[in-house]
Amino acid sequence: MLGKLLKHEWRAVWKVPVLLIGILMITAVIAGGTFALPIWNSEWVGLPLSGVMLIMTFYFAMIAVSIGIMIYFAVRFYKNVFTDEGYLTNTLPVSARELLINKVITMSAWNLIGGIAIVLSIVVFVIIMILSLMPKTSSFARDLFREMAHIPELFDSPYMEGFQGFCASLLIMVLVGAFNSTMMVIGSITLGQQVRGHRVLGAVGAYFAISAVVQVINTVVMMPMMFTMFENARMDSPFPILTIFYLISSAISLLIAVGLYFLCEYLIGKRLELE
């Protein structure tokens, strides 16, 4: 049944995030392309200002994608499980676990896709900007590729010690972060349902309360560790310290997300009240 839930969930949700990402990519191309326009040396301030505005639009589009996807899935989860649509969702012959895992997987995946799309849009923006600024006769591209061939040599430097481990820890942190931010939203909405009569307000309150608790846990666990690590660290490469820092941070996020998951599964499976 989980496979069927996932199939219908993806079919229902893909359009909005894809539209947001599409708009982001278009703004990245336009913003990068402004550097090719002969507006920057114009005596009329309006022209360079409009270029800046286009670049700012790209910046706001990145924020819009990040927040937009989160809000879209939060609203969908709330409507789909706890309002009128919940009368269908909660009478399907599936367990609360399957229902929740379906939502968590879909939302986490789209959080991740949104994040990747933002990084890609920055890459697109930078490439187009470089191409726009590069003189037609320049050997910049050839020089760039020649220099890039030397990148592997950088890893031999003592300043790059532990870089691979750092990349792995970064990847783990991104994956756990997508799961954690999903559970923060789903957990808040589900906890908010316990505040009868003020469910939306309850969800918002729960979000801030959970965030505060997470912040306290992070501070209590991380601060002493950070001081100890920095005192004992060799200062030639920052990566080993950052790797440990990211791994501990990921472990805390994962524990909180898993805790919230089981709390939500209990509340949806055993304490559901659709009024």
Partner: peptide, 16 residues
């Protein structure tokens, strides 16, 4: 889940 597979329910509201 087992009982839901044999109960067909029409709520009093628009739920699709």
């Amino acid at each position: 889940p087992e009982s839901k597979s044999c109960v067909s329910y029409l709520p009093e509201r628009t739920y699709f």
